[in-house]
Design a protein around this nucleic acid. Structure first.
Length: 275
DNA sequence: ATGGTAGCACCGCTA
């Protein structure tokens, strides 16, 4: 099973990039964030024609919005109550193969990293706390195959940003955020497959490069904001992981690039007994 | 120290 996650920064503006990516990469499932479109105007057709006929969408006007498009049928679709502002920032599907897939768009948090003066930062911290609480309180079958992906808007490790010291007081890499994200991770014993399974911690790794750089490639001031986590039941199941940096160079690119993982699943474990 | 870009909505907000 191959899963992708991509903050697309308007799915209507970039539908041709999405289809180009799907044609080339052929994931079974793609999770999108920042779709920026109400459900009635979601570009379902071009995705359906590529075989992504199963679509869970949760959009809102102008901002935020998440979607999961899939070649595998869904057993169920739900969205959690993590966002006190009522934004469209989470979707959860259970796939036909029994894998539960959570797609998150964590609030960016504004510019000032102080919850007392910046309500957007306070909201981001509240959202992450709600994630930690939800997964901590969830009864867990440790063998259950659960995946969490999305734009978590936090670059947790030193080499997830271009300059650790310089970014310690920049929203996305402050200690209060990285510690909270670590709590979310501990709450379900998640494995961050990029760092825990594929790429050594001393290597720089980014999934986002600002639009505001004159030359994003030359300055290379990136951050790793987009993540794929797996529950203990899927630890070691990933056979491939990639961050598609090349797509940042496509004409009209999103500021985020897709992150992809491939899993070898044990069919027996994931099969639902016949009704 | 500052300002740089992008999308959507609508003349500012969010990222």
């Amino acid at each position: 099973m191959k899963v992708g996650t991509w903050n697309i920064n308007s799915v209507r503006q970039r539908i041709n990039l999405v289809t180009r990516f799907l044609r080339a990469e052929q994931p079974d499932v793609l999770c999108l964030q920042e779709t920026k479109v109400v459900d009635e105007l979601f570009p379902a057709g071009p995705l359906r024609r590529l075989g992504y006929v199963h679509q869970a969408i949760r959009g809102q006007k102008g901002y935020h919005g998440v979607a999961i498009v899939s070649r595998l049928p869904f057993r169920s679709v739900a969205s959690g109550d993590f966002c006190r502002e009522g934004h469209a920032r989470h979707l959860c599907v259970v796939l036909e193969n029994g894998v539960e897939l959570n797609n998150f768009y964590v609030p960016a948090g504004g510019d000032i990293p102080d919850p007392r003066v910046n309500p957007k930062f306070a909201h981001k911290l509240a959202f992450l706390s709600a994630m930690a609480r939800a997964f901590r309180n969830r009864p867990h079958d440790r063998r259950a195959p659960v995946v969490l992906v999305g734009d978590l808007n936090v670059a947790p490790l030193e080499n997830d940003v271009w300059n650790h010291k310089q970014l310690l007081d920049v929203v996305s890499h402050t200690p209060i955020e990285t510690e909270l994200l670590a709590e979310v991770k501990d709450a379900f014993a998640w494995s961050d497959i990029a760092r825990d399974e594929f790429v050594p911690h001393d290597r720089k790794l980014y999934s986002w490069w600002s639009y505001r750089a004159a030359d994003w490639r030359a300055s290379d001031r990136g951050r790793r904001l987009d993540h794929i986590w797996v529950s203990p039941g899927l630890k070691g199941a990933a056979t491939h992981h990639a961050i598609h940096k090349k797509l940042r160079g496509w004409k009209g690119a999103s500021d985020h690039v897709p992150v992809v993982a491939e899993f070898a699943l044990q069919p027996a474990k994931d099969c639902r007994p016949p009704p």
